[in-house]
């Protein structure tokens, strides 16, 4: 049926330029509300989620700060408070709220936050096929075979029980691998934030940034790969 493309190349340059109020056409100085006519303004599609929350582009975020800001912006944008306003304002409130909710959901989760940051800095992770490291690839091929064998087996048989034991062991190994990857990611997040905080613009810093982003992208991609396999495995042996 439908030919749908995943939103590739949807990335736009961050645009900080202030525009005019849609209502009174005065120069916009306020953040989300016109200073002159106090009308709510549509949040620009080009505004990234970090900026929207007034946060620097860092991977370590204080969940309390994020929540407080989310509640504050929800009170500013939610359609409940625009019921008596014009249609134009209601439409803006709806759009802003939907955007705010997406932003909060993305930034609240450390993995989604990292994926989003990668998307901003280097293009979407999902669009780049990275090949998993050879040892992981081998391990998973073997696991796939065992899974197929188990699915085909008579569950009550002895061989099925042996396979089940093996699958349980494989699951433990993979879950350990997941934990290792989480730890590596945490470390990369820390390195990224530290580098950003230093704010160096040297060639060396640029290269370091590139390396960290590439490593993050690889681990995030492998993590998804392993996660899907683990889900499949858990569903099969449950």
């Amino acid at each position: 049926m439908s030919g749908h493309i995943h939103n590739t190349d949807d990335r736009r340059e961050l645009q900080m330029a202030r525009s005019m109020c849609w209502h009174c056409q005065s120069e916009m100085a306020g953040e989300y509300f016109c200073d002159r006519c106090v009308k709510v303004q549509p949040v620009s599609k080009d505004l990234d989620y970090f900026t929207c929350f007034g946060l620097p582009r860092r991977l370590a975020l204080d969940p309390q700060t994020l929540e407080t800001k989310f509640y504050e912006l929800s009170r500013a944008f939610h359609p409940d408070f625009y019921q008596n306003k014009s249609d134009a304002e209601q439409t803006i409130s709806l759009g802003n709220s939907a955007m705010l909710n997406t932003a909060y959901r993305t930034l609240r989760d450390p993995i989604q936050r990292a994926e989003y940051l990668l998307d901003l800095e280097a293009g979407s992770v999902k669009d780049i096929r990275t090949t998993p490291p050879a040892d992981l690839f081998e391990e998973i091929l073997e696991l796939q075979d065992t899974l197929d064998e188990f699915r085909a087996s008579d569950r009550a048989s002895e061989s099925a029980s042996t396979l089940r034991t093996k699958l349980h062991a494989d699951r433990a190994t993979l879950e350990q691998r997941q934990r290792d990857m989480e730890a590596q990611l945490q470390q990369l997040f820390g390195r990224w934030d530290a580098l950003q905080n230093r704010g160096e613009t040297t060639e060396q810093a640029r290269a370091e940034r590139g390396r960290i982003l590439k490593d993050m992208r690889d681990i995030l991609s492998n993590r998804t790969y392993v996660k899907n396999i683990v889900n499949d495995l858990v569903a099969t042996i449950a």
């Binding site: 439908s2 030919g3 749908h4 493309i5 995943h6 939103n7 359609p79 709806l94 759009g95 709220s97 939907a98 955007m99 909710n101 997406t102």
Partner: peptide
């Protein structure tokens, strides 16, 4: 409110 965009 929640929204999602999809390109066709």
């Amino acid at each position: 409110p929640a929204s999602a965009k999809e390109m066709f």
